[in-house]
Each structure stands twice: as C-alpha cells, then as structure tokens.
C-alpha cells in the first residue's frame, strides 16, 4: 500500500483511474446479464468489489473509506438480502398465502406468469450482487485496516 508522502505511483494511479469505471460497469453488466448469458450476482458482486479494492491499492485506505463509507457498506450488505428474502415474502403476500415462498410467478411485475419468474430472478440476482459486493468490500476494509494499524504500531 502506498503512503501519501511522496511515494505515489503515477502509472498505477492513472491506470486505476481509467480502469475502475470500466470494471464497475462490467460488473453491472455481469449482474444484469446473468439471466441471458454467463454471469450472475455472485460473480458480478465480486467484480464490483474488486473495483474498490483496486482503488484502495492504488490510492489509500482512508480515501477508499471516504468513497464507500462504513454506513453505506453496512446498509448495502443488508439491503441485498432484504431484496432476496423480501421477494420471497412478496410471493406469499401477493397471492394471499396461496403461493409458496420464492414463487416469483405470483409477484405482479407484469401480467405474464413466466415473465414474472424471469423478472423475479433478475431482482434476486441484483440482491445477491449488492450483498456480495458490500461484504467483499467490508472484509477487505477490515483486513486492510488491521494491517495498517499493525504498521503504525511497528513504526511507533
């Protein structure tokens, strides 16, 4: 990890600056595209989180935390699971108890049963993507913080 005092690597910073938007755009593509082709929530989430990790490696931890604060991290990691579990519950609610948990077809996104299933799956994949992204970022921040603290301890 580069410290800020004079050790900044211009090449890495520039490349990271250019790459990160593309990495995250690609991650969104992987998540959204999961239904039609290769991809899905787990993979897309990890790719998205790798964008943050690249930012932290190229710049510094504090900057990364500023871009993705702890509060947002906490909320996003729960929100993904809320979407997944909530969509399952919506199926029960919208059918007044006739359909089972996670029976996406009964959630009235559209008028068509099979389309509802496909859309339900899309939302679920997005939920997975959000949770995986937030959790991977959170684990990385925690480990990196620990590392940085140890370095401070050695210096001081």
């Amino acid at each position: 990890m580069k410290e800020e005092q004079g050790e900044r690597d211009v090449i890495i910073e520039t490349v990271a600056r250019v790459m990160i938007p593309f990495i995250q755009l690609f991650a969104l593509y992987v998540i959204i595209h999961g239904a039609g082709g290769p991809g899905g929530g787990f993979q897309g989430g990890v790719v998205f989180a790798s964008g943050f990790i690249l930012y932290i490696i190229a710049f510094n931890l504090a900057g990364g935390r500023k871009r993705f604060p702890e509060s947002a991290n906490t909320i996003l990691s729960s929100v993904g699971l809320y979407i997944y579990a909530g969509i399952g519950l919506l199926a029960i609610l919208f059918s007044f108890g006739a359909a089972q948990y996670l029976n996406y077809g009964f959630i009235p996104f559209t008028s068509h049963f099979e389309e509802n299933r496909a859309l339900g799956m899309d939302f679920v994949e997005m939920g997975i993507g959000i949770t995986v992204m937030a959790i991977i970022a959170s684990i990385f921040f925690d480990l990196a913080e620990k590392d940085e603290k140890q370095k401070e301890g050695e210096d001081g």
């Binding site: 239904a35 899905g40 399952g88 099979e114 299933r117």
Partner: peptide, 23 residues
C-alpha cells in the same frame, strides 16, 4: 421460467432457496 440460461434458472428458481442460503 422465460430465462434462456440454465445455470441461472437452476440456481435462482428451481433451487432458489439454496442460493438464499449461500448468500
């Protein structure tokens, strides 16, 4: 399921509950 990708509908629909567990 109106989804062309077998991995996706196997993962998220037929066995969607396992995927909730994995998440």
């Amino acid at each position: 399921t109106a989804v062309p990708n077998m991995v996706t509908y196997g993962l998220a629909d037929y066995r969607g509950y396992d995927t909730l567990g994995e998440t």
